[in-house]
């Protein structure tokens, strides 16, 4: 069942099957839309129409900006939200695990709020900040923050107590133990949290932009829907997916660079 990576002619079979199924899908798409015309462009645009729309959106503004402008607007909000989630969430999580009374005090609030999904915050964010960048950034923050806190906390909690005691025996104070022993050991877990936060934030951003905003990829597809331009929706969806994958790849790269001992 498991496919290992040694090169042999049989192992290209999965690839062949994959290519076949994707090819059939693409062929069906072309046949149904362009050749046979079973489904009209108001339901499913042809691949050519999507490509043409993509080229068109790059040069011509739609819904306030060209495609690149929407991408930048989305990325800007997303990076604000994720930045604050990491900068606040990671120390918060470390502190959470290290100082029991702090955790006891804050946990009831944290647990209550954590169970409210990020999108349920959209209406109240609109109320607080209006249709501004801050609204979307807040939703991204709320989606990303718990992952940072929880994984930092788990990382610190799972640090071997013997290491901590050894550091103490050698005369390290609390701060030094934390900085020299606990945080480095917890780093992989912290990074896992950051990675989850980054992708959660991206998903939440799309949701927030669908509801409120005047630019961004979510807004682009919402406008595509309002104008009955399905090809625009397709371009938007593809852009969101591709950017999501690219962001994840960048994070993986960074992870490998920063912690070469962690990954194969």
């Amino acid at each position: 069942m498991a496919v290992n990576a040694s090169p042999s002619p049989i192992l290209s079979r999965p690839l062949a099957y994959g290519a076949t199924s994707l090819g059939i899908l693409a062929l069906a798409w072309v046949l149904a839309t362009s050749v046979l015309g079973w489904v009209g462009p108001e339901v499913l645009p042809s691949p050519l129409a999507v490509i043409a729309r993509f080229a068109n959106l790059i040069v011509e503004p739609f819904a306030g900006a060209a495609l690149f402008g929407h991408v930048l607007a989305s990325l800007e909000r997303w990076s604000y939200g994720v930045f604050f989630a990491i900068v606040l969430g990671v120390p918060f999580g470390i502190f959470f695990a290290w100082v029991p009374w702090f955790r006891a005090v804050v946990n009831p609030v944290f647990e209550t709020l954590r169970y409210i999904p990020p999108f349920a915050w959209v209406p109240i964010a609109i109320l607080w900040f209006g249709a501004s960048t801050a609204t979307q950034a807040m939703v991204v923050f709320i989606a990303a923050f718990p992952a940072c806190v929880i994984n930092a906390q788990l990382g610190v909690q799972h640090v071997d107590n013997i290491l901590v005691q050894a550091a103490r025996v050698f005369g390290a104070d609390q701060l030094n133990t934390l900085r020299r022993v606990v945080v480095p050991v917890a780093t992989p877990s912290i990074f896992t949290g950051i990675r989850i936060a980054i992708s959660n934030g991206w998903m939440a951003l799309v949701g927030a932009e669908l509801v409120v905003g005047k630019t961004g990829l979510g807004f682009l597809i919402a406008q595509g829907q309002q104008n009955d331009s399905v090809s625009t929706i397709f371009v938007g969806i593809i852009a969101i997916g591709v950017l999501g994958v690219l962001i994840d790849l960048c994070v993986q790269r960074l992870e490998r660079r920063l912690m070469p001992w962690q990954l194969p």
């Binding site: 099957y17 994959g18 949701g207 669908l210 399905v230 397709f234 969101i240 999501g244």
Partner: peptide, 27 residues
Amino acid sequence: RVKWLVFPIFQLIRPVPPLAWIPLTLV
């Protein structure tokens, strides 16, 4: 074989957040 056939399509769709489908389903 089923995996080889279905998985690529699945991988293609997976990176898109479910929410991004909302406008399409509305249409």
